[in-house]
Each structure stands twice: as C-alpha cells, then as structure tokens.
Design a protein around this nucleic acid. Sequence first.
RNA 1: CGGGGCGUAGCUCAGCCUGGUAGAGUGCACGGUUCGGGACCGUGAGGUCGGAGGUUCAAGUCCUCUCGCCCCGACCA
Length: 574
Amino acid sequence: MRWTGFYLFTTREVPKDAEVVSHRLMIRAGMTRRVAAGIYNYLPLGWRSLAKLMTIVRRELEVAGCVELSMPAVQPAELWRESGRWSRYGKELLRIRDRHERDFCFGPTHEEVITDQVRHDVKSYRQLPLNLYQIQTKFRDEIRPRFGLMRGREFLMKDAYSFHADVASLDETYEVMGQAYERIFEACQLDFIRVEADSGAIGGSHSHEFMVVAGTGESVVVRCGSCDYAANQERAEAVLSPPRDAESAERPEPEALEDVDTPNQKTVEDVATFLDVSPSQIVKTLIYETDKGLVAVAVRGDREINDVKLGNFLDVEWLEMAGEARVREATGAPVGFAGPVGLGEDIRLIGDYSVRQSVNFVCGANRADGHNRGVNWGRDATPESWVDLLLVEDGDPCPRCGKRLQLSRGIEVGHIFQLGTKYSEPMKCVFSDKEGNSHAMPMGCYGLGIGRTIAAAIEQNHDDKGIIWPLPLAPFEVLVAPLQVDDPEVASTAERIYRELLEKGVDALYDDRDERPGVKFKDADLIGFPLRVVVGSKSLAQGHVEVSMRRGGERQSVAVERAVVHILDLLTVG
RNA sequence: CGGGGCGUAGCUCAGCCUGGUAGAGUGCACGGUUCGGGACCGUGAGGUCGGAGGUUCAAGUCCUCUCGCCCCGACCA
C-alpha cells in the first residue's frame, strides 16, 4: 500500500475531551473518528488492526470447534418478550419501531436470536453439542460512553453461543473456550489475566473474565501474590472474619446496652473519634432500597459492601442506597444514625461476616444524634442471615491460601459464562434424548470485545511518541520510507525493497509522500509500525539503508542488498 | 436522571464579563528559501459564530427555548 493512495491522515492535535491514551492516539494516528457519542468510524488504518485481531480470533475459534455465522443487528421485540428481556433489559436496549409500528431493538447481544435459530433446526441430542459465533456490531445505549473504543455504544463484538445435551458437555466446551481465549490474547502479545467473575442473576456455575492489565482499566481485579487465585472485585470472596464456633472463642463479657448522645456525628470516623473507639469496632448499618423492599445491611465500620454480592444474595433485579427520605422513613432517623437495634418489622436485616464476631459494639440508635454502645448480637438484634457481602480491599487475605491479595486495574476484553437453560427454557429450545425425553439445552456464551481489545493493546503498548504495536495487531508490519522521493536513486531503491517485501508476504506501507524527513519520522512513531526502513540519500551513497524497530528504537545500518533478508529475520524473531 | 462545562475556519482555540468591521495557531492552495526528527518567509482561499425566537438603532457577545457534545456524580451513613 502506498501512503498517498491510502486514506491516512494523522493530526497533531486532539479534542480536549479525549483523555485516555488509547483514544488520543487512535484519533491522532487516524484510526478512528467519532461520529456521535460512543459511535465511531473505523478508518482504514484502524480497520486493518481490527481485521488482524478478527483473523486471530477466527483462527483460534475454528480450532476450538466454533462455526461462524452472522445474525442481524435489528431484532424483533417478540423474541425479547419471549425471553423476558424486553421488559427487564432496561434503557441500555435501544428500541426502535418500523413503519408498521412494530417494535424492534438494535441487538446488544444475540442470545434470543441464536436460540430461536437453533430451536428451529436442532431436535436431537445427536446434533449436539454446537458452538456458533459471529463478529458483529452491537449497540448498547450506555449511560455514559467514554474512552473512545473502550466503552462505545456501538461496538464490534465476537459473540459465541454453545448448545449442549448435558452440563458435562457444557463444562467441556467452556474449558475449551477458556483456553481458546488464552491463546487469542497470547497471540496478540497482551499482558492479560483470567479472573473469576460474577455470573450474576444468570446463575450458572462458572464465569470468567479476561482482563488486559492496564492502569486505565475500568474493572478492579483481585489477585493473590502467592497462589493463582484471581477474581474480579465484584466476585472476590472475603474471608476477613471466617465463621468460627462461638464456644471455642474467648469472648468478653457482654456489657449493658447503652444509648449515648452523639450530636452531629454522622460518619463512622466522626463517631469513632467522638466515642474514642476504632472504626472497626463500629457496626455500620446501610439501608438499601430494592425491588423487593428495604434491606438493612450490617458491616464493619471501616469496610464497604459489595453491591453485586448483595444483589445476588437477595436475588433482586436492582438495588441502590436508600435516599434521605426512605432512610428516615425506615429508621426514624436522618442518614448517619441507622442501626440494627429496634429496626422496624418491614425491613430485613442482613449481617456481613465481618461483624459476626463483633461484641459490645457501637452502632446507630435509629434516632437523630444518638448511637448505641455495648451492643451484642442475639440479645439486642439478630440478622436473618450471615453472608459474605464485603468488598475486598488491597491486603485482605486470599480465600484460597490466606496470603495477601493485591488489587489492580484491568480492561475487560473477554467474558465467558455458562448460561444454563436461562434462554433455552423460556424459549423452548429443546431436544430429545436417547429415551425420547425432551430437555432444554444447557447453553454457554462467550464474548470478546474487538475494538476494546485494540484499545487495550494501545493502552498497554505506547510511549510519549505514539503507539508501539505488538506485531500481530499492527496495521502494517513495516514502513518503507524514502526520505527524498524526488531523488531517483532513493526512490527506486526504496520502491524495490517495498516490492520485495510485498512479494515475501510482508505487510508493508510505502511512504511515498513528498514530506520532510521529520514529518515522516514523527508519523512513523505515532502510528507505531513495528519495523521501519529508511532510505536516505546520504546513507544510500554508502550503500546502506537504515532499519529500526519501534520498540526499543535501536537503528541499524544495513547494506541495501541485505535489507529485505534482514527485515524478514527481524519479523520472524518477532 | 442530577450537577458543571462547551458548541466561533477542516482541526485546536481566543473573542462574550463591559453589544458596534470575524480573530490566532495549525491544516489547505500558490510562490520562494530549506531538506535525517512535525522548517522558515510571503500570498491566498476558507465562517448562515450549533439552531429557533426575543431584547436592541445594532447580538458571536444579553435573555428564553431547543439540539448536540464533554466531564463529574448518581455507592458507604
């Protein structure tokens, strides 16, 4: 490809609202341009990187036994009504109406459509298992799209769906897919980890996310420094105060329950200072509002609740911290003075493990400017359940080996989970077993963000000059840059090298622009071609061209006749 | 959805408070000097100042409405 014939325009400046490195660099390198909020053009250069990733994905999925197909972006509401998601999915589902006033949506995912297809064709256990995938445009009407391709509304996603005759088969495919994902991200040369993830209301025994390690990631990853435990923070188990036998522990004598005045002491820190206790001796009571009513959660004063765990335990569709008015209604006190003692009948009380062993603790008294001290479970209040609801923090003990956990940030580029019969059941995607009995097919689903993976690759591979592509994802492997295009000697040499590279199957771009050397160098660094061949009149007079690698940046003078061989060597080594 | 901010040349922005001739840099075109790390000089083209309405002799500037975009928040008592 010749630069002047390629639609490639770099810029020096970038809109000030582009804050994340990958976003800025993609705009500057001429890879993408925003069309609307969270909606982008993939320009030829960017599209080449996406295409390379898609090729890798297809290659590994074929190995894993997946079959590619393509499904529509626009889907009829009736399928979503059947699965129940038309009403449940919420505002992220972009709903549209055709000229006949029929309801459609722009697909955010394709469980309904694929299930509808498979139930039509597959009737017997003999036809299972199946694993179908597509790479296709999705639309999710995100509250706040941001960070360019990292969180767009319209985006490219590889989504695969597997169908099985039994759970064992699902388990097997799930593992195969996990390995395929590992091979994909390894092939992209990305630093990633596979973490346990929350499978949420979907149920299912397994769910894993694939995270590209990056400080700008939106997800928090919990890792053990000693063993291989790794989980999404939403999922990570807390073992702060493991349950133990009450009688085996030495417990202080219960003190009398006391009601003390704590004027204006609303936060845990305020109360701790005021009453001269440590925050961990305070039991904080959080009031949540859910679609199943109000819930009070007791947790150690210095810790936070993991809303995802809470939502899963309660099996609710939504929950949020109750507002000022609801808190007052529920506890009779303003925010800051809720406590487990004497809570109303209409509010459930759940205890987090972190306070199960608490004795003679401090908590809100459910009145303005008042707290209880000397509170004890059983005598003064009793949660209906003790549950792990804690948000894991840096330094907490590992649930597997007890060593310290570390928190880091990651970009979620892949998510695999077992759906079970969540869709096959309501949509009657059934098959006959050997005995002729009918069963809903257990399903798995496997997503991989194409654009997000490219963005993540840039987040992980750049410097102050620009992108440093991992070779497999680079839009072009080699840039051939003649510095003086009007010098016939320079031009013909550069052109010859370029042509030979093409003949050898190398993905090369020929910078035939009549630009000053500085401009060409800056653009080369910005775009991040892994290899660069510079043909300049001065070195050519010595019979040399210059070959350099973007990563590391070292330049080598190479004899003209050896240039192509040398480049091929470098490309093989990687 | 709540709060804040921004829409002016292809791009990045100034001008708005205090109403009176539409600006800079960059990019683009042309000419010249340059030519191995985003050169310099000169000339030029390029704008319904997001849109609608209002106030005014006069609106990019003030007011109202509207559309679009961005940021923060919508979580810890």
